[in-house]
């Protein structure tokens, strides 16, 4: 299978805490790959590693056949024009309008005339259904609209890869549905590769082509959505069904409660 992103035996530590221990993962070209896992295991970190903002302690990350961490800063910037990232907060520039936000990458990286930029931006905004909001400021948008505007900005330069960081977090069911539809539609119509990092199981299983589940520094399950749902791993099942206790314990690791209480009284 033709892979756009290949991660091989990657280990990443933050301080003394290990985030990833020797994981390998492939993102097939033109497909939607979902990366799921409980909160706080560093799913955003994974995207930053692919984007070259963080460097792994060992192992390699390849994008389109190039090792992201073995090239110069200029080459990395060149490489990043082919990828874009949709941040959890949208990360729109708050001091310029929606239109200028979407036009921003075009103005930075191309020498197109202002009239061409205007029509391109209109097309991108049309794709996310926000053409009418072009002149609003980001502060005037709702959370879901801000994320869609950021999506329009992310696809402005027609990237090969779009990375979605928790696109569904904190969204009402309608905007969630809109985003699900948008991710699928963009993937199909533009032929881009998508990585969706999320913990919203039901939504992502409807659109993903391939799923990885991360927990405890490792990949604990992978496969197509059907394979995942029939997985026999306790961990995977706990995550999919949202059980409070299981292999992932309810309690943060702590000394025994009775010991602590008795110890304090004596």
């Amino acid at each position: 299978m033709d892979n756009l992103v290949t991660i091989k035996n990657m280990t990443f530590k933050r301080g003394s805490r290990t985030i990833y221990n020797d994981i390998s993962l492939n993102v097939p070209r033109g497909k939607i790959t979902a990366v799921m896992g409980p909160s706080g295991i560093g799913k955003t970190t994974l995207l930053k590693l692919i984007g070259g903002q963080l460097t792994p302690d060992s192992g390699t990350v390849e994008f389109n056949g190039k090792n992201v961490h073995a090239i110069s800063r200029n080459q990395l910037f060149e490489l990043r024009r082919d990828m874009s990232m949709l941040f959890q907060s949208g990360a729109l520039f708050t001091d310029i309008s929606v239109f200028d936000n979407v036009a921003f990458p075009l103005r930075e990286h191309t020498h197109l005339s202002e009239s061409v930029i205007k029509s391109l931006v209109a097309l991108k905004l049309q794709a996310v259904g926000l053409r009418g909001a072009a002149n609003l400021m980001p502060s005037e948008l709702s959370g879901g609209m801000a994320r869609r505007a950021a999506l329009a900005r992310a696809i402005a330069l027609d990237p090969k890869l779009i990375m979605f960081d928790e696109p569904f977090a904190g969204q009402d069911p309608i905007s969630m549905g809109v985003l699900v539809k948008l991710i699928r539609a963009l993937n199909d119509s533009l032929g881009v590769t998508s990585i969706v990092v999320t913990h919203d199981v039901t939504e992502v299983l409807t659109i993903a082509d391939y799923v990885y589940i991360l927990a405890e520094q490792k990949i604990i399950g992978e496969g197509t959505p059907e394979q995942i749902q029939q997985s026999e791993s306790d961990l995977v099942q706990q995550f999919l069904q949202g059980k409070a206790d299981g292999p992932v314990p309810f309690h943060f690791s702590a000394p025994d409660l009775s010991e602590q209480l008795l110890g304090a009284s004596s």
Binding site: K48, G51, Q53, F77, E78, R80, R81, M83, S84, M85, F87, Q88, S89, A91, L92, F93, T94, F104, P105, E108, H109, A150
Partner: peptide, 18 residues
């Protein structure tokens, strides 16, 4: 904090310069 600097980097724009 709002990831604008990160997103600039990901757009291949150097936040130092911009």
């Amino acid at each position: 904090a709002t990831e604008q600097l990160s997103s600039l980097e990901m757009m291949a724009v150097d936040p130092l310069r911009r």
